[in-house]
Design a protein around this nucleic acid. Structure first.
Lengths: 102, 102
DNA sequence: ATAACAATTAAACAGTTGTTCAATCGTAAA
DNA sequence: TTTACGATTGAACAACTGTTTAATTGTTAT
C-alpha cells in the first residue's frame, strides 16, 4: 500500500511534532512574522508584544525542529523561516481562513 | 499592509487551533485514516490500536472545529475529513517528510 | 421488552506545556 | 577592562491536555 493512510507510526509522530509547534498562538505568530523576511529577536518580541525571554524559548523549539534558521549579525540574532513546505502550508492555511469568512 | 505577517491576532489564534488539533499523534493518525474514505469509529479504533472512548473523544474535538464530518449508518457512525485545505496540507506535509528522508 | 452492539460522555489523574522571573552569556562600544 | 545591549538559559508554577475507567445513550435484532 502506498496510500497516505498507511503512513508509518513514527512518521505520523514526526508530522505531529511539526504541527504541534505550529499549534501554539505565540509560536504561530512568530512564524508568521519571519515568513517573508528575517527578523531579530527583539523585533519579534516588540511586534508580538511578548517578552524577549518567551520569544527566545519558542525560537529554540522552532530551531530544534529546523522550522527556523538563526543568523547572528553583531549583537542581534536574526531568524528566518527555514522550511519551504511549512511556508507554503502557512500561506495555504491563512488563505483558507480568509476565504472561510466570506 | 496585506502581507500574511500582518494577519490579525484572532485569525492567527484560529489557525493555531487547527494546527493544534493536527499536532497530536493520535488525532493526526485518525485524520490520516479518514483522509481518503469515511470510516466507522470502531474501524478507526481497531486500525490505530486506541480505545473506542479515546477515538470518540478526539473525533468530538475534530468535529467541533469542522475538520471532520460524521454520518450515522445504522449502529455505526462514519467519519470523513471535511476540510479541503486540511486535506491538501496533510498530503503536502506527508510528502515533505517522505522527501526529507532521501 | 430485552439483549447485544456501537458510540458517546463525565469524572479523574498524570504528564506536558506555556509563561514568568532572575541569572547568565556573547558581542560591540567606551 | 568596563559598560551596555541583545539574546539565551534554567528553575518554578499554573494551566492545559491526553488518556483511562465506568456509566450512559442510541440503534438494531431477538
Amino acid at each position: 500500500m502506498t496510500t497516505i493512510a498507511a503512513e508509518s507510526k513514527d512518521r505520523v509522530a514526526e508530522l505531529a511534532e511539526v504541527f504541534h509547534l505550529m499549534g501554539d498562538p505565540s509560536r504561530l505568530g512568530i512564524l508568521m512574522l519571519v515568513l517573508d523576511e528575517a527578523r531579530a529577536v527583539g523585533e519579534i518580541a516588540a511586534a508580538t508584544g511578548h517578552s524577549l525571554s518567551l520569544v527566545s524559548h519558542h525560537l529554540r523549539l522552532l530551531r530544534a525542529r529546523r522550522l527556523v534558521r538563526a543568523e547572528r549579525r553583531g549583537k542581534q540574532v536574526f531568524y528566518a523561516l527555514d522550511d519551504a513546505h511549512v511556508r507554503s502550508v502557512l500561506r495555504d492555511m491563512a488563505a483558507h481562513l480568509r476565504e472561510e469568512r466570506r
